[in-house]
């Protein structure tokens, strides 16, 4: 078999193409650095920063929300307690008032009753006095009438009935 020389670049030292290789690679490196890698890396960096900022912000707002929720819960609790206290107070006040009213009513009725009893006693006294006076004058009149007239039995009857009539009036 003959010599296998594919590419045939195995031997020799082609300085020229080596220089081409070196220079073109360096140019490629510089150009890509300027036109490709720099913008690409910048965008990636920006995104990373953006994401980390967003995470920070999210963290901050989460904390804020947590605090707000806690405050709200506390306030709600306080408000509820206050409401409870107000209701309690109102109930107590209502009870107190009820008791007061009842007591007042009882006192008033007591007073009225006493007054009524007193009135009755007074009236009774007055009536007694009036009756006494009447009885006295009546007996005087009866006595005088008896003395005035000679009384027959028939007259006596007549007189008695007259008196009875008069008494009945």
């Amino acid at each position: 078999m003959q010599t296998l020389t594919i590419g045939a670049a195995v031997g020799g030292l082609p300085i020229g193409s080596m220089l081409v290789q070196l220079i073109s690679f360096i140019i490629l490196l510089l150009l890509l650095k300027k036109f490709a890698w720099k913008p690409l890396l910048k965008v990636m960096q920006d995104r990373q920063e953006y994401i980390s900022n967003e995470i920070d912000m999210a963290e901050a707002s989460r904390k804020e929300a947590e605090t707000a929720a806690k405050t709200a819960a506390e306030e709600l609790k306080q408000t509820r307690a206050e409401a409870q206290a107000i209701i309690e107070e109102a109930r107590k006040a209502g009870q107190q008032q009820e008791e007061n009213i009842i007591a007042a009513a009882r006192r008033e009725s007591e007073r009225l009753k006493e007054a009524a009893v007193e009135d009755i006693a007074n009236e009774k006294e007055k009536a007694m006095q009036a009756l006494q006076a009447q009885v006295a004058s009546l007996s005087v009149q009866i006595a005088s009438k008896i003395i005035e007239k000679e009384i027959s039995s028939e007259d006596q009857d007549k007189l008695i009935s007259e008196y009875v009539k008069e008494l009945g009036r």
């Binding site: 670049a9 020799g12 082609p14 300085i15 020229g16 193409s17 081409v20 290789q21 073109s24 690679f25």
Partner: peptide, 11 residues
């Protein structure tokens, strides 16, 4: 200064 033209071209 030798050039391997195909290598240079392909580079």
């Amino acid at each position: 200064l030798d050039f391997n033209l195909s290598t240079s071209l392909m580079t």
